[in-house]
Every structure is written in C-alpha cells, then in structure tokens.
C-alpha cells in the first residue's frame, strides 16, 4: 500500500496535464513567431512585387505545420489521461517530457523559420534564383520540429509497456 502510494501519487496527473498543455502552447508559440516574423517580410515584398506573394507564403505554411505537431502530441497525451485509471508518476513525467520535447523543438523551429522567412522573401524579391535555397533552408528548419515529434511519439510508447 505504501509503495503503491509512492508509485501512484495523487499529484502525478499534474505532470501529465502540464505536458499536454506545454505541447500545444509552446508549439503554437513557435508557429506564431514564424508566422508573424515572415509575415512582416511578406508585407514588405507584397508592396513592390505582388506577383511573388504566393511563393512568399511558404514560410507561413511551414509554421502552420509546427502547430499540427503540437496538436498531435497533445491529443495523444489527452487520450492517456482518465480519472478512472491509476496514473503513475512515471507516466506523468513521461508525458511532461513528450510535451516539452515537441513544444520546445517546435519553438526553435518556428524561430528559425521566422528569421529565414523574413530575410529570405526580401532577398528572393531581388534574386529569384534564391527560391530553391530558401525552401531548402525552411525545410531543414521545419525538420527540427519533426525530430521533436518523433522523440515524443517514441517516448509515448513507453506508457503501455
């Protein structure tokens, strides 16, 4: 009984819910930074060359993906939380690690997309050959968030094991 209380304390779900919240909040924060900073650049380009807006919107789409990553992990964590089941402290810490993995790596990816998107579309206006390089840099920045998602998914498999 005593060890059971140590393994399944009443405060264990706190960490799980903290992970669930931090996954979507931090990844949305990264997505917002990427969208806002690249949006400044797109607004600067659009006044001079409106025909380039469609191509310049790629950083915004890439930022939107980051919020989807956080949403997926949040839904996964929320599916494991139930008031009927016993919830171990291990699961709580694991879900916190899941949320922080995807949240903070999406924040980093969103910041990189924002900086590259802002400066990239401005220089793309002057040199159209920059498009392939800009898209490649954006993909490599966005893959950082994907790594966080993969680690979070692998961590999440440890709950049922």
């Amino acid at each position: 009984m005593d060890t059971e209380n140590e393994l399944y304390p009443t405060f264990a779900p706190f960490f799980g819910f903290a992970g669930c919240a931090s996954a979507i909040i931090l990844s949305s924060l990264g997505s917002a930074v990427g969208t806002a900073k690249s949006g400044i650049g797109i607004a600067g380009v659009g006044t001079f060359k409106p025909e380039l807006i469609m191509r310049s919107l790629i950083p915004v789409i890439m930022s939107g993906i980051l919020a989807v990553y956080g949403l997926v992990v949040s839904v996964l964590i929320a599916g494991d939380m139930s008031p009927d089941n016993e919830y171990s402290l291990f699961s709580g810490f694991m879900h916190l690690a899941c949320g922080l993995c995807v949240g903070l790596s999406a924040l980093a990816a969103g910041y990189a997309i924002g900086v590259v998107g802002d400066e990239g579309v401005r220089q793309f206006m002057l040199q159209p050959k920059l498009f392939v390089g800009m898209v490649l840099i954006l993909i490599f920045a966005e893959v950082l968030g994907l790594y966080g998602l993969i680690v979070a998914l692998i961590l999440n498999t440890k709950a049922t094991a």
């Binding site: 989807v68 997926v72 839904v75 996964l76 599916g79 994907l146 998602l149 998914l153 498999t157």
Partner: peptide, 9 residues
Amino acid sequence: RQWAGLVAA
C-alpha cells in the same frame, strides 16, 4: 495512437 499521429504528421 502513435502510428495514427505519425500518419497525421
């Protein structure tokens, strides 16, 4: 859910 999340990504 893990594989479904991967498919969504």
